[in-house]
Lab assay of single mutants.
Amino acid sequence: TETYKYDDKREAEKAAEEFRRRGITVTVEERNGTWVLESK
């Protein structure tokens, strides 16, 4: 599991889209005002 942090929800979702395009499952969730993207 890799974790990436973003200040902006849009950025996180854009990154998530890129991962999914490569066939990687990711989750995006907000933690304490930071958007956390996790690849499984």
Rank of each mutant, 00 (worst) to 15 (best):
Y6F: 13
E2P: 12
K40P: 11
T25C: 15
T25M: 14
E38T: 14
E17S: 06
V26P: 01
A16P: 00
A12H: 00
K40C: 15
Y4Q: 08
D8W: 03
E30D: 08
G23A: 01
D8H: 06
A15M: 10
L37R: 00
R20I: 07
E18Q: 08
Y4S: 06
Y4H: 11
Y4K: 09
L37I: 14
K9R: 12
R10Q: 13
A16K: 05
S39H: 13
E29S: 12
T25Y: 14
K40N: 10
R21E: 08
E30L: 12
A16C: 07
V28P: 02
G23K: 02
E30I: 06
D7E: 12
G23I: 00
V28F: 04
E2Y: 08
R10G: 11
E18G: 08
L37G: 01
A12M: 04
R22W: 06
T34L: 13
F19S: 03
N32E: 11
T1E: 10
G23M: 02
E11N: 06
R31K: 10
T25V: 14
D8V: 06
N32G: 07
K9S: 04
T3F: 12
L37P: 01
D7K: 14
R31A: 05
Y6A: 01
K14A: 12
T27Q: 07
A15N: 03
D7A: 14
E38W: 09
N32C: 12
E17G: 05
R21K: 12
E30V: 07
K40I: 14
R10M: 13
E29T: 14
E2I: 15
E2F: 14
G23H: 03
V28R: 00
T1I: 12
K40M: 12
A12G: 01
K40L: 12
V28K: 00
S39Q: 11
K40T: 13
A16D: 00
A16H: 02
E13T: 05
Y6Q: 01
E2S: 11
K5P: 05
N32I: 02
V36Q: 04
E11A: 11
V36R: 02
K9M: 07
R10D: 14
R22G: 04
E38V: 15
E13D: 09
T1M: 12
E38A: 09
A15Y: 04
V36K: 01
K5A: 12
Y6M: 01
G33P: 02
T1Q: 10
R10K: 12
E17L: 09
E11P: 01
G23N: 03
Y4F: 11
G33A: 02
K40Y: 14
F19H: 05
D7R: 13
A16N: 00
K14N: 08
A16V: 06
T27E: 06
G23D: 02
K14Q: 10
Y6I: 01
Y4E: 05
T1G: 11
L37S: 01
E13P: 00
V26H: 02
N32A: 05
E17W: 05
D8Q: 05
E30N: 11
G23T: 01
T27L: 08
V36D: 02
R10P: 05
V26Y: 06
Y6N: 01
A15Q: 06
A12P: 00
T25L: 13
E17F: 05
V28W: 03
T3N: 10
K14P: 00
V36L: 06
K9V: 07
Y4R: 10
S39M: 15
V28Q: 01
E38P: 00
F19D: 01
R31Q: 09
K5T: 14
T25D: 13
W35E: 01
R21P: 00
E17Y: 05
A15L: 03
R20M: 08
E2V: 14
A16R: 04
F19W: 09
R10H: 12
K5S: 13
R31I: 13
F19P: 00
R20V: 04
F19M: 13
R21N: 09
E11Y: 04
K5L: 14
I24D: 03
A16W: 03
T27S: 09
E13K: 04
E11S: 12
T27M: 08
T27I: 10
S39V: 15
Y4A: 06
W35G: 01
R22Y: 05
T34C: 15
G33L: 02
A12C: 12
T25R: 11
E11R: 05
E2Q: 13
Y6W: 04
Y4P: 06
K14F: 08
D8K: 05
R22L: 10
I24H: 08
N32F: 05
E30Y: 15
F19V: 04
S39G: 07
G33E: 03
E30G: 04
T1C: 15
T34P: 00
R22F: 05
T27D: 05
L37W: 01
L37N: 01
A12L: 03
G33S: 03
W35V: 03
T3K: 11
T1K: 11
G23L: 01
V26C: 12
V36W: 13
E11I: 06
A12T: 00
D7G: 11
A15S: 04
R21A: 10
V26T: 04
V26M: 08
K9N: 03
E30M: 10
K5W: 15
W35Y: 08
E13S: 03
T34Y: 15
T3Q: 11
E2K: 13
A15P: 00
E17T: 05
V28A: 02
G33F: 03
K9H: 07
T34V: 15
F19L: 13
R21H: 06
E13W: 07
K5Y: 15
E13M: 13
R31T: 06
K14Y: 07
T3W: 13
E2C: 15
E30F: 15
R20N: 06
K40G: 11
E18F: 07
R31D: 06
K5M: 14
W35R: 02
A12E: 00
E18Y: 09
V26K: 02
W35K: 01
R21V: 07
R20A: 09
R20S: 08
R31C: 11
R21W: 03
E17I: 07
F19N: 02
I24K: 08
E13Q: 08
E29W: 09
T34Q: 15
A16I: 05
E13R: 03
E38Q: 10
T27H: 09
L37Q: 01
T25E: 14
T25F: 14
T27P: 00
Y6G: 00
T1V: 12
E11W: 04
D7C: 14
G23W: 02
E18W: 12
E2H: 14
D7N: 14
S39C: 15
R31E: 06
R22I: 08
L37F: 03
K14W: 08
K9P: 09
V36M: 04
E29M: 10
R10I: 13
E2A: 12
E29D: 06
E18K: 07
D8R: 03
T1L: 13
V26S: 01
R21G: 06
K9E: 08
N32L: 04
E11H: 06
T25Q: 14
Y6V: 01
E17P: 00
A16M: 07
V28T: 02
E17D: 10
T1N: 11
K9I: 09
I24L: 11
F19G: 02
E38I: 15
A12Y: 01
L37V: 15
R21Q: 09
K40A: 12
D7Y: 13
G23Q: 02
A16Q: 06
R10T: 10
I24A: 08
T27W: 10
T27C: 06
R20W: 07
T27N: 07
E13I: 09
E18A: 10
D8F: 04
D8P: 00
E29R: 10
E13N: 05
T3E: 09
E38N: 09
E30S: 07
Y4G: 06
E30T: 04
E30P: 04
A12N: 00
R22H: 10
E38D: 07
I24G: 04
E38Y: 11
T25K: 11
R21Y: 04
E18I: 07
K14G: 04
Y6T: 02
V26A: 04
K9Y: 11
S39D: 07
R31H: 09
W35A: 01
Y4D: 04
G33I: 00
F19R: 03
T3D: 08
L37Y: 01
E29H: 12
T3M: 12
Y4C: 14
A15G: 03
V28S: 01
K5N: 10
V28Y: 03
T1R: 11
T34K: 15
A12W: 01
G23S: 02
N32M: 04
R20F: 07
